[in-house]
C-alpha cells in the first residue's frame, strides 16, 4: 500500500514541478522547479531499485547541469522585465491544444498496446556491482565513445564561450 502512496506523491509533485518549469516567468524559479523535479525523479528511480542511477541523477544532473543553468542565468544577469514574454497569440493556444491532443492519443495507443502485467515492486537488490560489470563488458565501446564525446564537449564549449581576443 505504501508503494502506491509514495509513487502517487512523487508523480504528483513531478508533474507539478515540470509544469512549473514550463510556465513560470522567472528563469531562476524555473531552474529551482527543475531541481525539484529531478530530485523527485531520482526518488522514483531509487523507489524502483535503480539506486546507482538515482545517485548519478542527483550528482550529475541536479548537482552539475542545473547548477550550470543557474550560473548562466546569474552571469547573464537578465533583468526580469526583459523576460516578460509577449501575450501568446491565438494560434499558439491552438497549436498547444493540437500538440497535447496528439501526444495524448499517441500515448494512449502505445499504452493500451502494452500487454504487460503488473510490475511487481520488486526492488532489485543492490545492483551497482552488476551494472558496473555489464557496463565494462558489453558496453565497452559506448563507454570509450562517451569519453570522446566529453572531450568534444570540453573543447567545443571552451572554444565557443571564450572571450574573443
Amino acid at each position: 500500500m505504501s508503494d502506491q502512496l509514495v509513487f502517487w506523491g512523487l508523480a504528483g509533485f513531478i508533474t507539478l514541478s515540470s509544469v512549473a518549469v514550463v510556465t513560470v516567468r522567472n528563469p531562476v524559479t524555473a531552474a529551482v522547479a527543475l531541481v525539484i523535479n529531478l530530485f523527485l525523479l531520482a526518488g522514483v528511480y531509487a523507489f524502483q531499485g535503480a539506486d546507482f542511477v538515482a545517485a548519478i541523477q542527483i550528482i550529475v544532473y541536479t548537482g552539475a547541469i542545473v547548477v550550470l543553468f543557474l550560473f548562466v542565468i546569474m552571469i547573464l544577469n537578465l533583468d526580469p522585465e526583459h523576460l516578460r514574454s509577449p501575450r501568446p497569440r491565438i494560434w499558439e493556444h491552438l497549436v498547444l491544444g493540437v500538440v497535447i491532443a496528439g501526444f495524448a492519443y499517441i500515448g494512449y495507443r502505445f499504452l493500451d498496446s502494452l500487454d504487460v502485467g503488473k510490475v511487481a515492486s520488486n526492488r532489485l537488490p543492490d545492483n551497482t556491482y552488476d551494472v558496473a560489470m555489464i557496463l565494462f563488458s558489453n558496453y565497452l565501446w559506448p563507454f570509450e565513445i562517451v569519453s570522446i564525446l566529453i572531450l568534444l564537449a570540453i573543447v567545443g564549449s571552451v572554444a565557443i564561450a571564450k572571450k574573443p581576443k
Binding site: 552539475a64 547548477v67 550560473f71 547573464l76 544577469n77 551494472v131 558496473a132 563507454f143 562517451v146 564537449a153
Partner: peptide, 25 residues
Amino acid sequence: RMSVKFYLTAILFILFDIETVFLFL
C-alpha cells in the same frame, strides 16, 4: 555582466563530474 570564468568552471565541473561517476562505477 560577470566574467565568463565562472561559466567555464561550471562546464568543466560537469564534464569531470561525469568522469568521477564513471570512476566510481
